[in-house]
Design a protein around this nucleic acid. Sequence first.
DNA 1: AACCCGGGGGT
DNA 2: ACCCCAGGGTT
Length: 362
Amino acid sequence: MPNTTHNKAAFIKDLLVWFAQSHRPLPWKDTQDAYIIWLSEIILQQTRVEQGLPYFERFRANYPTVKHLADAPEDEVMRMWEGLGYYSRARNLHATAKLIAYELNGEFPDTFENIRALKGVGDYTAAAIASFAYDLPHAVVDGNVYRVLSRYFGIATPIDTTAGKKQFRALADELLHSKDPATYNQAIMDFGATHCKPKQALCKTCLMQKNCAAFAKKKVYDLPVKSKKLKKITRYFHYLVINEGQDVWLKKRGPGDIWQNLYDFGLIEAPATLTTDELQKTEGWSALFKNTNVDIKSISRPFLQTLTHRKIVAVFIEMNIQKSFQPPDASYIKASRNQLDQYAFPRILNDYLNDNTLELFS
DNA sequence: AACCCGGGGGT
DNA sequence: ACCCCAGGGTT
């Protein structure tokens, strides 16, 4: 690794100059309310600012204090999070709000260690809250920081390894402007997000260009380095849309799989898409409809959803049932078909429910 | 260390 | 089709 001692002071100086001229106003930057800062940081995990912004405004308006959030019903919180993804964030947010409101006397933790101990708060989020809410000297290391530092200092260590994380963490700690850690943290993330972008980096107009190792070696788009590639597995879902008069049976999803605490329908998963004949021979089918007569109305086209490391293929089998359905466990609930907006669904269910070419629940 | 957890937007 | 996003948790 090249000796970068000289460049470190220039990096900090130029970064703060850039920030003073070019930072973007964000609605969670006008406060030092730790609750509001925490809320914004959880929403922004693996989420673009533009995507998270309306969710932030909605949460802040509905839950202006941590107690409002703590006292909200879980289904309501999940519904407000619907569509944002990574739903463990919403579950941890709600659990942590209860903890703060009722175990910590409504007072948000004010040390790095105590913030870091909260559910859903890792190294990045703890450093962000500690610096933004309390001016504590902790450097953030997020995707922006990896990109900016790897390029400027020409570091090709893969960022998704233990050694890489350690190296970038150490550099970030060295660079932290301890007099004003909040401004420094905000500056490096803003710079990465709007100037030193993954693609179409604005090198041409960059005042850091003169000292940027990647620019000098024409390696801007080779950094940062990631070593791991993920494999995508396809899963085949067969959703059983069980209608009983004006009601339809929903199922609350449990732990150990995607979409925990969201709602869907009775589900039979198979290694491939099955015909209705094949479906009725599965164990899942007989377990669900032991002594019940089922009248299959129709089977939908395949709906597709791509997740980070899964591809979901789902077909929806609409059926009427004569006698009352006997659910095998308490995760099944009967819901009125015109009150489905009370439930948070995965995107692929909303795609199905909102497909006007289908005749649902006829 | 490897894997899991979403959905949107850009290229 | 692939990458990235103000990452964190579990095994």
